[in-house]
Nucleic acid binder design. Sequence first.
DNA 1: CAATAATCGAGACGGTACGTCACGTCTTCTT
DNA 2: AAGAAGACGTGACGTACCGTCTCGATTATTG
Lengths: 212, 212, 212, 212
Amino acid sequence: MRRSASAKAKDGKYPKSRQRRGPGRPRSEQARQAILGSTLKLLGANGFSDLTIEDVAAHAKVGKATVYRWWPNKAALIADAFASNTTPQLHFPDTGSLRTDMSQQMQQLIRIFNSRRGRIVSAILAGGQSDQELIAAFRQRFLWPRRHEAYATLRRGIGRGELPKHTDMDLLLDSLYGPIYMRFLIRHAGLTPAFVDRLCRLVLAGASARRK
Amino acid sequence: MRRSASAKAKDGKYPKSRQRRGPGRPRSEQARQAILGSTLKLLGANGFSDLTIEDVAAHAKVGKATVYRWWPNKAALIADAFASNTTPQLHFPDTGSLRTDMSQQMQQLIRIFNSRRGRIVSAILAGGQSDQELIAAFRQRFLWPRRHEAYATLRRGIGRGELPKHTDMDLLLDSLYGPIYMRFLIRHAGLTPAFVDRLCRLVLAGASARRK
Amino acid sequence: MRRSASAKAKDGKYPKSRQRRGPGRPRSEQARQAILGSTLKLLGANGFSDLTIEDVAAHAKVGKATVYRWWPNKAALIADAFASNTTPQLHFPDTGSLRTDMSQQMQQLIRIFNSRRGRIVSAILAGGQSDQELIAAFRQRFLWPRRHEAYATLRRGIGRGELPKHTDMDLLLDSLYGPIYMRFLIRHAGLTPAFVDRLCRLVLAGASARRK
Amino acid sequence: MRRSASAKAKDGKYPKSRQRRGPGRPRSEQARQAILGSTLKLLGANGFSDLTIEDVAAHAKVGKATVYRWWPNKAALIADAFASNTTPQLHFPDTGSLRTDMSQQMQQLIRIFNSRRGRIVSAILAGGQSDQELIAAFRQRFLWPRRHEAYATLRRGIGRGELPKHTDMDLLLDSLYGPIYMRFLIRHAGLTPAFVDRLCRLVLAGASARRK
DNA sequence: CAATAATCGAGACGGTACGTCACGTCTTCTT
DNA sequence: AAGAAGACGTGACGTACCGTCTCGATTATTG
């Protein structure tokens, strides 16, 4: 979004002044927080298509124009709200076993997908089907950060000999996470811990056996 | 979906009479086709949320009430339109090799996902995130029919010893198709034939190796 | 306004059929009346610039779109409302004396101008300064009908020798009514019966004396 | 209109000091001129209701708050702009003949009404119908100054015997100017020199003949 | 063959939310 | 203290679709 200048200006040589800013009333951080908070709350309660900007503005006690001033459409708003709140949990452990590391992280993921926060993820993926920017925001702010951690986890596994040296990491990760996303979106079967466990076992067995 | 009565009256055992029908003008088959056709066309062009009943009716040169008379909401209309057109291709071959059978079918699937028809699938999955009925229709009319064929294919593989006897077929099929759906919806990487090939190899290696 | 066809079709050869009308639900006369009535009521209460279409629609218990469907803007709506209600009073008497005839009608006029209905007239004249159509509607539906009656009254006066044969009737009528409009709009002095009486006397004296 | 204090402090008796003024930056005369000028320009271009403070401020390259600091509303601004520019022409001649004096001044008036400046007058009269202060400003700054000159002109006529001693001057002046305003605002007939000439002749004939 | 009945197209209806605009106020930094 | 800049909450704008409704016209079955 715009106006990142002041937020970014924390190269703090001078303790608390000097953050360059143009003239005019500065953007209200309070309004911004209220809008993002209301968006998440209403999205979790009613789903993507029932979320109206009018409701968000009213719930945040903010003028509708203030929402439109900073976010061009519902999708951008949701993406921002989601990113501003993206669980600081969801990190990869380092237990010394590849399967344990992956399995534990995947278990965390399905807990989120099965919670009220899952509605937000599904709203973003749904909205993203008709909005390139939204799905791109999901990739950039949610998918890639975690995937970079996953690469590191896989590399540790390669180091320990749990995986072949030239493993296609994207193929492997899509094989692990794809089934979770599929069940999450199509809901033809439950997203249970047991499922994750067996999925992980199945795919990692295939990956380690591949050097035949 | 009130349409059942007249639709059902078609399995005419008795040559050309007796199809029980009340008085009054019968439903126009031409209007039905035009509506379903327009739905698909507009859905492919603009995505779920940009599809309006008003447009469908206008494009099909039909009164709006005619649409509402037969379909209770947008989701039902899309589901019907999708089903009425579901590719008669997409069947499972029987080549004698499990991996070949699966691989060939999955290649067909990504061809569809990568074509203009893919937009319709993605629109349904997107719409389904805020409409239980729509995603249910997708499962019932698209997913399950194919999955039943897949079960048969897997059973042949078990018979040939390519898979262990007690294979969890749903887990296996989700592992094969999940990554395809994930890439299709998140678009973080391409849906290429090579990807499908390596995916199939990876997962089936895991499945056959599992009895260790 | 559109759709005058059916209203006009009273050349009733065929007692109660034959009024040609296109397909589709016919316009609701009830809604039309409610809208015009609410317009006048709110206009009299609050003046031109405080009148909102939103209020009119709400007060008439009608959708906003129904107002916009039939009237392109506030001015047209007001003009129509005014015309639909134009006082059936305000006719010219025929007393045998030109001055009495004119004076009595002018007294009626200032009674209207001084009443709540005067606000409506002033709103139209105000709105008309930035809307050609509105002021044209005022002329066509209010000014000319009365002026045609005034011509007849003046001609009777000419017949009786109260006015010269070649009187410029528009000049004379503007001289009689202009001062009323001026005081009505600028409000620098009261619109009293005494004023009207003396005005009438002054101008008619000038008109009859002109043949010098 | 809070501006009085600083404006008044200008009649500097004392050469170049002592003009009592509080601390702080003095009001910018340049901004004032730019605002009034932009107001007139935009008013002449678009009429009363299309004139926005936002446009005025932007066009004058001035902050919106600077406009609001000095003028409480649009009406006051327009009134001020109008007054600040009121044609220094429009004075009454003294030719020795009442009819010539009046006629010449009225001809000047219709020249203004027919010019681009007429739009401004009509905008003020229009706006004044829903704003007491605006019409009051028009009377105070435009009507009364001229009318006082007119009284003097009429008194000279009385002195010369062109008018009866106890002439009702307001009635007479409204009779002369009212028809001009009426034609100006309702536009049912042209504001031509010939019209003014005959109007003047008609009304003054009535006025001088009244002593019967 | 009329009467009845359900469909069709068209399009107006009362609503809701949209995204924009201007309002008049405010908060910041600059002059 | 006034200036410009520009964000703020407010509220009306005019538009687009919603899903329902009333029309006249059409097309079948039933009496």
